[in-house]
Amino acid sequence: MSETAQRAKSVERVAYSLQETAEATGKTFSAVYQQMMVGKIPTCRVGRRHLVPASYFEEHAITPARKGA
Rank of each mutant, 00 (worst) to 15 (best):
V52W: 01
S17H: 01
R45S: 08
A65S: 13
H60V: 13
A31K: 12
A24H: 04
Y56I: 03
G68D: 13
G26S: 10
Q6E: 15
A54G: 00
E59W: 01
E12I: 13
V38W: 10
I62F: 10
M1N: 15
T21I: 02
T4A: 15
R48S: 13
E12H: 13
V32C: 09
G39P: 00
T28E: 10
C44V: 15
K67D: 09
Y56P: 01
S2H: 12
T63V: 13
E59D: 12
A22V: 06
R48N: 14
L51E: 00
F29P: 00
Q19D: 05
A22M: 03
T25I: 08
K9E: 14
V14R: 05
V46T: 07
A31P: 02
E12S: 12
T63Y: 11
E20I: 04
S55A: 12
E12R: 14
G26A: 09
A24F: 05
R13S: 02
K27C: 11
A24L: 07
V14Y: 05
L51N: 02
G68E: 15
Q34I: 05
T43P: 02
V11P: 02
S10T: 12
R13G: 02
G47V: 08
A24S: 11
P42H: 07
T28R: 05
P42N: 02
Q19M: 01
A8F: 04
Q6H: 15
T28V: 01
A24Q: 07
M36D: 10
T4M: 15
G39S: 04
V11K: 06
R7V: 14
E58D: 15
S55N: 09
A61F: 09
Q19T: 07
E23V: 07
E58F: 12
T21H: 00
V14N: 04
V14W: 07
T25S: 09
E59C: 05
P53I: 11
Y16P: 02
R48G: 05
I62P: 02
A15N: 01
T63M: 12
